[in-house]
Design a protein around this nucleic acid. Structure first.
Lengths: 270, 270
DNA sequence: CAGTGGTCTAGACCACTGG
DNA sequence: CAGTGGTCTAGACCACTGC
């Protein structure tokens, strides 16, 4: 289990052999000072990314990690604290620290901010999902740009409709890099029950870690009206999401149209 | 400067006189365990709320606070860490810890999530502001509910238009509880240059700490079209914001209409 | 009861700021 | 140079979980 202790960057040699200190390079004055706990954080991140610890599994205890990295428990703790704050890890007192997952989340749909006007939660039950299409295409230029791939590369394009209480509410198009999602088909999407991002984790080893959304108000075209069963001139929320895995690598572009007659997009500002 | 040490709740008497421990009440089994640093956090919060430390001023050093509260520096540190994470305090290494403010913010408009399509920042210069109206009215029922006041109470209603590069982009109506904002007039709003929330801080001692937004897509009515100088059937983002001071007390209801032709609402998901 | 995360302390040293 | 926040350690004890 325990791999060999990883080398830690010593910014300078000092007291207890691994204490971080500043190093004044003569080169381009980049301070480049990195605290020990940041280095530990990076090492834990590596293990997460490499798949050493699978989603929903427990990572080693703080004491174990402290021994492995040859630092104090407090330093490991601070590293884990940050990773937990970023929703990459989940701490559970008395049990351990676990790799976060999009499945078995207390709130299904971690990234979906649409809520019904009345009932507080998305407690109208899970959305009904209808996969319209799933095909392999050459990446359009805007998609290629968003996913940081070349236009010559293939992407998977999925179109689906989500309904709440049998009312079509969300029309989504999403694009995934073909390289990472070989073998994804409409059938597999239909067969899977649970969040799509959970399927990505278990079937393709791709973990969506964060996302950015650009929101606009738009009017739908005829095709969109038909799919959402709405009349023309119905204003819709256009939600363009770019989702990222580790290392800020974009892995999904998603364009959603949200019907906001009986739902609203909720956002908290701090 | 230093007030007398505040009493700390001892969940049980233990080692060093103020260590937090669980107390098993025989009453309704509420654990009611509160770590020391949470109590310290609450005390700091009190001082912020009472105005002991003004916005943009420095609070006492960690060592001073530790002495004042009779706890270790580490405990004060953890309390301040959380307050900084909630944007109530701002830490500056080598200088001190300061009370956060809506003025002199690195990004003006802390709560405004609208960005231009091209230029990354809101670097098209500050928005041009036009105060349309500022009047005192009896609180409509929905406003009263949002502000947690009675319908019989007076509220200030402000209407304004924000323009970017001379293009009207945001039409906002906002309601403020009359009790806290006595003497606010259109003239004073026009005279003040800087974020409105900064004016609230300096002139009325009201600090907006967090907010929640409900976002929808809507079509404007004739009056709104005229104010924004757009043609009918232009879809707009409807952004309804409730802003809170300390203790989660709602202090503002704001309804904005955003033109998203050349701007978008940006949101980060973690 | 052992093992895990959570809190608290005391002390040392580092990095940054400003006089 | 003194003062501030930032990092790191070592050790103690507490709260929670599950066997």
């Amino acid at each position: 289990m325990n791999t060999a202790p990883q080398p830690l960057i010593e910014n300078t040699s000092s007291a207890s052999d691994v204490v971080a200190t500043n190093v004044s390079t003569n080169a381009v004055q980049t301070p480049a000072f990195s605290p020990l706990y940041q280095q530990i954080k990076a090492l834990i991140l590596q293990s997460l990314q490499s798949g050493e610890w699978k989603p929903s599994a427990a990572i080693p205890s703080e004491m174990d990690l402290a021994a492995r990295f040859k630092v104090s428990q407090g330093t490991v703790r601070k590293a884990i604290d940050e990773l937990a704050a970023e929703n990459l890890l989940v701490r559970r007192q008395g049990k351990g620290t676990f790799v976060a997952t999009h499945a078995e989340q207390h709130v299904q749909y971690r990234f979906l901010r649409l809520f019904p006007d009345d009932g507080d939660l998305q407690s109208e039950g899970p959305a009904q999902r209808q996969i319209i299409d799933c095909k392999r295409v050459r990446a359009p230029s805007d998609v290629a740009k968003a996913l940081a791939i070349r236009q010559t590369e293939a992407v998977l394009q999925v179109r689906r409709v989500l309904s709440f209480a049998a009312i079509p509410t969300i029309l989504e198009d999403l694009w995934l890099p073909g390289a990472q999602f070989k073998g994804l088909t409409a059938e597999r999407l239909r067969a899977y029950h649970g969040p799509m991002y959970a399927l990505f984790e278990t079937e393709f080893g791709v973990r969506m870690v964060r996302a950015e959304e650009k929101i606009r108000a738009v009017l739908p075209d005829e095709e969109q009206c038909a799919l959402l069963k709405i009349k023309a001139q119905t204003p819709l929320l256009s939600v363009e999401r770019t989702a990222y895995t580790y290392n800020d690598a974009p892995m999904e572009l998603r364009r959603g149209l949200y019907l906001t007659d009986t739902h609203y997009y909720r956002n908290a500002l701090n």
